[in-house]
Design a protein around this nucleic acid. Sequence first.
DNA 1: AGGCGATATGTAATGAATCCCATATCGAAC
DNA 2: GTTCGATATGGGATTCATTACATATCGCCT
Lengths: 123, 123
Amino acid sequence: MKPPRSSRNDVFLKYKLWLSALSGEGIIGEGQYKLLRAIEEHGSLKAASDILETSYRKAWGDIKKAEELLGYDLTEKHRGGKDGGKSILSEKAKTLLEAYDALHKKMDDAIEDAYSDFKETIK
Amino acid sequence: MKPPRSSRNDVFLKYKLWLSALSGEGIIGEGQYKLLRAIEEHGSLKAASDILETSYRKAWGDIKKAEELLGYDLTEKHRGGKDGGKSILSEKAKTLLEAYDALHKKMDDAIEDAYSDFKETIK
DNA sequence: AGGCGATATGTAATGAATCCCATATCGAAC
DNA sequence: GTTCGATATGGGATTCATTACATATCGCCT
């Protein structure tokens, strides 16, 4: 063993939650959630990817993949126009985000409960 | 959009849960859990990594890292001997695995509840 | 004493995910 | 009808996790 960096149980629980296709491929996770929210707020995929400091290329690919897996559009895409183009969340996307929020809240509560028990057992 | 591969909501929720250090590094997740259980069952890290079809190198590194982060040993390691060596779970590791089981059960229940609501919202 | 097989650990090769660059297309506004 | 900036997409470069390989050490057993 290496130097015991700490004798304290300075550990905690983390989790990730995502919507998955039957194939096992992830559809909507934390990343996509943030991306969609950013699109909603800033009005374009470009602005969203800039804000999130990820590449436009990846953001675009993620949205596209999610839409293909879901079988419906998450954004209404517009090229050209005054500002060169824009992206707007579809109604389904908005519903999805709402559901995702509710879901996360539930899981947060559950994990909080579970955590106290966990630490109890672990000491 | 691409051909709508499915008009059905054939999606489901998945989650990952793990014990993390303050630094953010993962300590015990699904992989380590399985690895420790395999060590418990088969008596050596070698056998465990073979069964799990992962490299011995990675398995060994994972255990080592987890032990360093936790500050205590998860396995009693023995080199040499009749079978060349062996690894046995420490008492703390056993307790940890028990707690992890309980935790997962709770989370599974929670996610099951959350899922029905989720599908309800999504339709 | 020597052999065997697992622990222990460094380093090079591989492969997948992501980023970076480049280019095409669109359409409202001027 | 020209300009502008975002959508759209391919392809090469890079980063990062894992595997593969290589080598040393240990200690019971014969």
